[in-house]
């Protein structure tokens, strides 16, 4: 039950992401293959409770995620997909690119665009989150270790 959490460009009024995030293209830079930081994992964990988050908190989390990549001048993922613990009938939920709106997806409903490719990996609880890049998927384990999939 995957859950695409967000798109790459979060730009809304006063909740705009950090300056670095705004100026970096989603696919630019190298793929970040080092283990993800505890701060990043904590931000991902906070998204689990995204249904009850205020837009301000959500933007803060999204900025936190962007910071992980910006600090190392790495490519920013197009989106994030994670295993969903909400249960039936919902299989997935997503944060739209304009931010702060959480949509729930029922089983069988396709995820938007390239995020669909990560669905199979998010079906079990193996990975904390799957980062979706244009030609690769990076699966992040609970300890921050990553696995790059796709040639």
């Amino acid at each position: 039950m995957p859950r695409p959490l967000m798109g790459p460009q979060q730009q809304i009024g006063r909740l705009a992401p950090t300056a670095a995030a705004r100026h970096r293209p989603a696919s630019g830079g190298r793929l970040l293959t080092s283990p993800r930081s505890a701060r990043y994992l904590a931000a991902i964990a906070r998204l689990d409770a995204s249904a009850t988050l205020l837009p301000l908190d959500l933007q803060e989390i999204i900025d936190e995620l962007h910071r992980e990549f910006d600090e190392t001048w790495s490519a920013v993922p197009q989106g994030f997909v994670a295993h969903c613990y909400l249960g039936a009938p919902y299989e997935a939920h997503t944060v739209t690119v304009d931010g702060a709106i959480i949509e729930h997806y029922r089983a069988g409903e396709p995820l938007p665009g390239p995020l669909e490719g990560a669905r199979a990996l998010a079906r079990t609880e193996h990975y904390r989150v799957i980062e979706v890049y244009p030609d690769k998927l990076v699966c992040v384990r609970a300890d921050g270790a990553v696995v790059t999939v796709g040639e």
């Binding site: 990996l121 079906r123 079990t124 193996h126 990975y127 270790a145 696995v147 790059t148 999939v149």
Partner: peptide
Amino acid sequence: VAADGQLEAQNVAAFPT
């Protein structure tokens, strides 16, 4: 380790629904 991780990911992705 990376190779084994990729095999694991392939395996998880191939898990039938």
